[in-house]
């Protein structure tokens, strides 16, 4: 087990190095730069030039006067200590501070959305599996297909229209009160609801065909004993492999939704940073998101091993 953990962490570190390298190369080869972009976006046409000594001092502060490979090494050395320094846009604070402040917001949104998706998706999947090939099953499949194929920003616009503009149930924008969570969480949850329903159904249908399920019926079990106790248990274990990465994906993928609803989460900062060519911010958040995704997958694999007695006991025997 320990050997496995060390190996996996090693792989994660190597992968993160390459993620950083690729992002760095892409950033360096992308057109435009922060100074020009900011001027264009703020439409500050009168101030055509920046005084050269100011620009030089600024470049020095961000190590932009050094050769690219040195810049990269400085980034790696700092990133290893979770230090990304100040960004172009927010020179008075550091990127890691921004991450620590805004990431919990994105993460909370993602957790709420996944929670909602599980609460709706699992029962829906169970019903579809038990009523396989009936009209109920067909409707569940159709709904889950719509859910998975609609991007969350489209869903968000639709929900704003129906729930906020037409029905006046919730405010369409704003942040800070519980009611402001409704629309973003719903928009984020639709996709996972679809995929969890579909996965749950497929997994349960497969399990229900197993011999030990017939044995459980033969022992006198009913729906509760056979489906909920015996079958669901074995179908839920693989579901973790779906939910874990989805949580990571959602934490990262709140970009659109956060911008749409003007939520001060990390996704919003990420998107703005890319528009403004705020490279330190882009580098910092990309590497951070990559770490989150890889760590989640890693944790999912560990949990999977703990839940499945076959894997758990074997790894214990090996030491």
């Amino acid at each position: 087990m320990l050997k496995y953990v060390v190996k996996r962490i090693g792989f994660i570190i190597i992968a993160l190095f390459f993620v950083s390298l690729i992002t760095f190369i892409l950033i360096k080869s992308a057109p435009g730069n922060y100074v020009e972009t900011e001027r264009l976006l703020s439409q500050n046409v009168t101030d055509v030039t920046v005084p050269p000594e100011v620009k030089a001092a600024w470049e020095k502060a961000y190590h932009l006067d050094k050769p690219a490979w040195q810049q990269f090494l400085i980034f790696i050395a700092n990133a290893a200590r979770f230090e990304f320094g100040p960004s172009f846009q927010y020179p008075s604070t550091t990127i890691e501070k921004i991450i620590m402040r805004t990431f919990p917001i994105s993460f909370r949104l993602a957790v709420m959305a996944i929670g909602l998706a599980l609460i709706i998706g699992i029962p829906l999947g169970i019903i579809a599996a038990v009523k396989k090939d009936t009209i109920v099953d067909r409707i569940a499949i159709l709904l889950s297909m719509i859910g998975t194929s609609l991007p969350n920003y489209v869903m968000a616009v639709f929900l704003i229209y129906v729930l906020a503009l037409e029905l006046h149930l919730v405010p369409s924008i704003g942040w800070g009160e519980p009611k402001h969570y409704v629309l973003p969480v719903l928009s984020l949850a639709i996709g996972p609801i679809g995929s969890i329903t579909r996965y749950m159904r497929a997994s349960l249908v497969e399990t229900l065909n197993r011999e030990y399920i017939r044995v459980a019926w033969a022992k006198g079990g009913g729906f509760r004993e056979v489906v909920l106790k015996h079958a669901l248990r074995n179908s839920l274990i693989p579901l973790i492999t779906v939910v874990g990465p989805q949580l990571a994906y959602l934490t990262v993928g709140t970009v659109f939704v956060e911008n749409l609803f003007n939520i001060p989460g990390l996704g919003k900062f990420y998107a703005t940073a890319a528009i403004y060519r705020d490279y330190p911010m882009v580098m910092g958040t990309t590497v951070f998101f990559a770490t989150i995704v890889m760590l989640t997958n890693f944790i999912v694999d560990i949990i999977y091993g703990i839940l499945d007695p076959r894997i758990r006991k074997r790894s214990m025997m090996e030491g």
Binding site: Y212, K219, G221
Partner: peptide, 30 residues
Amino acid sequence: IRGNRISMIFQDPMSSLNPTVKIGQQIMEP
């Protein structure tokens, strides 16, 4: 009646037991 007054043993013992439930639990269930 099932598992109470009429019980059944199946052909393949390798797949007749739930892999994630302890043997004892499965025996007690009827």
